[in-house]
């Protein structure tokens, strides 16, 4: 199995996770979407120096991982490519902001270090929340929820087809990579001299595939209106989920829980 086939397998792995059954999977997709958006907004709204205030926000995704039965390991494994990028955000803060805020022995903690850690945590938390949403909802249910919330049809269709098309392009790339590797034994990756033609071929092939797929859709009655997955009706438990998660987020936002807990031990 080459890298592309692995990527394809991981992509379908997300769909399989979304097909599992757990109390979180059973929550209405709109409720999960709203709760996740709220989580991201509240997380991002923390001040760049409020590291201790931000810490307890991890509790919500951790709780959801427990409820959904999805492992934290699978989350970090699937996010391994974007995590370094998120971690890189704020990497230069310690160089620009050298204001001392804390002294631990001889070591001075600067504002830049705190803001760097805060930015990193914000990124990681938001990724975890987004992963949970996708892993417990699936793209079809998510798009159905977006349509129910009256998001523009064109945007939602674009989102759904783009997600589907990633798989198609990855398949093409897998075939091309195999063909290349079989005639370039011992070579790691694609040699730079072949990059141009490789990309050109991929573009042409993916355009052909796209045209064929679109024809297949047209021939089966598609007319710019996608029939999204059936979404179960909105129950009071879904409302409770939104209200409960909002209450938790705002509590963490306006009460520094880490400091509150700390006061029990340090007076």
């Amino acid at each position: 199995m080459n890298k592309m086939e692995k990527a394809l397998s991981e992509l379908s792995g997300m769909d399989r996770l979304a097909e599992q059954d757990s109390p979180l999977h059973r929550i209405h997709p709109s409720a999960k979407l709203l709760s996740t958006v709220l989580y991201v907004i509240v997380t991002v709204s923390f001040s760049k120096y409020d590291l201790s205030g931000l810490f307890p926000m991890i509790l919500w995704p951790l709780l959801l991982f427990q409820i959904s039965g999805i492992t934290l390991r699978s989350c970090f494994y699937r996010l391994r490519i974007v995590l370094p990028l998120v971690m890189a955000v704020g990497l230069f803060n310690p160089f620009f902001d050298r204001t001392p805020v804390l002294k631990i022995g001889a070591f001075t903690v600067t504002g830049g270090m705190i803001s760097m850690l805060t930015l990193m945590l914000k990124g990681v938390y938001c990724l975890m929340a987004s992963y949970l949403l996708m892993a417990t909802t699936g793209i079809d249910q998510l798009c159905a929820a977006l349509r129910k919330m009256h998001f523009p049809r064109m945007l939602v269709t674009l989102l759904l087809l783009t997600y589907r098309y990633v798989g198609v392009m990855t398949e093409e790339l897998a075939v091309m990579t195999d063909a290349y590797q079989l005639r370039a034994p011992g070579q790691k990756g694609i040699h730079i001299s072949a990059w141009g033609s490789f990309q050109g071929q991929l573009l042409l092939r993916s355009m052909d595939r796209a045209q064929e797929l679109y024809s297949s859709m047209l021939l089966r009655g598609y007319h710019e209106h996608f029939h999204y997955a059936d979404v179960s009706p909105f129950h009071w438990t879904d409302l409770l989920y939104i209200a409960g998660s909002a209450a938790v987020f705002f509590f963490f936002r306006y009460f520094n829980t880490a400091r509150l807990i700390g006061t029990f031990f340090v007076r």
């Binding site: 589907r164 198609v168 064929e212 797929l213």
Partner: peptide
């Protein structure tokens, strides 16, 4: 029914 079933089947 298309020659290449991969091109015909686009849903998961």
């Amino acid at each position: 029914v298309m020659q290449n079933s991969d091109n015909q089947m686009f849903m998961p």
